[in-house]
């Protein structure tokens, strides 16, 4: 009898407890959404607005990524340089890298000359084909 009284007489603390459960459900759903929908991309320190494009070639994951900034400067590894110097630096940089998986992240406003100069430098370093990264757009 005493036990019945306790259960019926004290519903208030239990209700307080239960209001947090929908919150946890929603937070778990959000967590699972971000886990599944997002790709853990490596964040780069180079701010680049990729050009928009429509073609998406099947390409394996790229091992080496070079950046061309909007002002035309080129990132080779950790170093920033004029594109005309990149050819010389790339010979050393690409020595122990996979030459078939090189990609270029070029800003859409970067001079095409810088990108082409960098690609010429890559040819000099033994790279036959590069992948220009674009964003899906019109």
């Amino acid at each position: 009898m005493i036990e019945f009284d306790e259960q019926d007489g004290a519903p208030a603390p239990r209700r307080e407890f239960e209001t947090t459960i929908p919150l946890i459900n929603v937070v778990f759903l959000l967590l699972i959404f971000f886990l599944l929908a997002g790709t853990l991309g490596e964040t780069s320190e180079v701010g680049v607005n990729l050009p928009s494009g429509t073609i998406d070639d099947p390409a394996p994951p790229q091992k080496v990524t070079l950046y061309v900034e909007a002002d035309g400067f080129v990132w080779v590894g950790e170093q920033v340089m004029e594109p005309s110097l990149a050819g010389f630096m790339l010979k050393d940089f690409m020595k122990d890298k996979d030459k078939s998986r090189v990609s270029i992240k070029a800003d859409q406003a970067a001079p095409a000359e810088s990108v082409l100069t960098l690609m010429e430098g890559l040819r000099g370093a033994g790279v036959q084909q590069v992948t220009l990264l674009t964003e899906r757009g019109s």
Binding site: L35, T39, D56, E120, R123, Q128, R136
Partner: peptide, 21 residues
Amino acid sequence: FFMLTTSFLQTQALSVVTPAA
């Protein structure tokens, strides 16, 4: 953590042959 580290940017690949100097 996942909100801050995920990126939803989908990049596409465009293969180009490198030009000769």
